[in-house]
């Protein structure tokens, strides 16, 4: 280990990469979650054609490797005339993939909510949309939170795949520097530490969120 290399070369490069990583993770997480909610609701409450289409989407994106999806978006789409920059392809791939997983957790949560909740809301004059927004969604998100949180943590780790389609983020910066200096062990241990930190921070944050949203006796049956 060479401290001067680490502090004067590695860390500045990795910090630059970290920003790109965050620019990949945050939008993908938001779009993915939104997509997951829409798809989850469509699968559960949508008319048959929509529900089937949404399920097919989720099955396809959960059944194939994310890396293949990224290759499809980045290398495959130009074949039918659609050109995406590495960054856009990465965000699109991450959002589509995590949306599919989110929809699974959200669907499970929606199915676990008893029909009496809907009837009670309707008996008070809630419209269909208001019932979903004020009664069903808050309950479903609490139930889905552990799975959804896990998926966000996966997203942090899988954001490293952006490097393979030439979007140079944290892992990419590390790879470039390692290849120049042949200090693979040092570089990737430190890169690993960056991810460990991100993942640990996210876990702590999610646990805090779960505690904050905890409702006595809710989610046990």
């Amino acid at each position: 280990m060479d401290p001067s290399f680490i502090w004067s070369e590695l860390v500045p490069a990795l910090n630059k990469g970290l920003i790109v990583s965050l620019l990949l993770i945050v939008p993908s997480a938001c779009i993915g979650l939104l997509l997951g909610i829409l798809v989850g609701f469509s699968r559960t409450f949508g008319p048959p054609w929509l529900s089937r289409a949404a399920s097919a989407y989720a099955t396809i994106f959960r059944g194939t490797p994310l890396l293949v999806q990224l290759f499809m978006l980045y290398f495959g789409l130009p074949g039918i005339g659609i050109y995406l920059t590495p960054y856009v392809a990465a965000v699109a791939g991450f959002s589509l993939c995590s949306g599919a997983y989110h929809s699974e957790y959200i669907r499970g949560a929606l199915l676990s909510i008893k029909s009496g909740q809907i009837r009670a809301a309707e008996s008070l004059g809630f419209s269909r949309v208001k019932t979903m927004v004020h009664i069903i969604l808050p309950q479903a998100m609490r139930r889905a939170l552990p799975g959804v949180g896990n998926e966000l943590i996966y997203l942090i780790k899988y954001s490293s795949l952006a490097y393979i389609i030439t979007c140079i983020e944290l892992t990419g910066e590390g790879k470039i520097l390692a290849a120049q200096t042949f200090r693979y062990t040092e570089v990737f241990l430190i890169v690993g530490c960056y991810y460990l930190l991100l993942v640990s921070l996210a876990s702590v944050g999610l646990r805090k969120l779960e505690d904050m949203l905890r409702v006595p006796g809710f989610g046990k049956g």
Binding site: K114, G116, Q117, R119, A120, A121, E122, S123, L124, G125, F126, H134, I135, P138, Q139, R142, V215, G217, F218
Partner: peptide, 26 residues
Amino acid sequence: RQQIGMIFQEFNLFDHLNALQNVSIA
């Protein structure tokens, strides 16, 4: 429906809201 109150056998309270919020949300 707002003019007709309904009480269910199995309560159907909103499990994620406390007692006060259950009454105030509608």
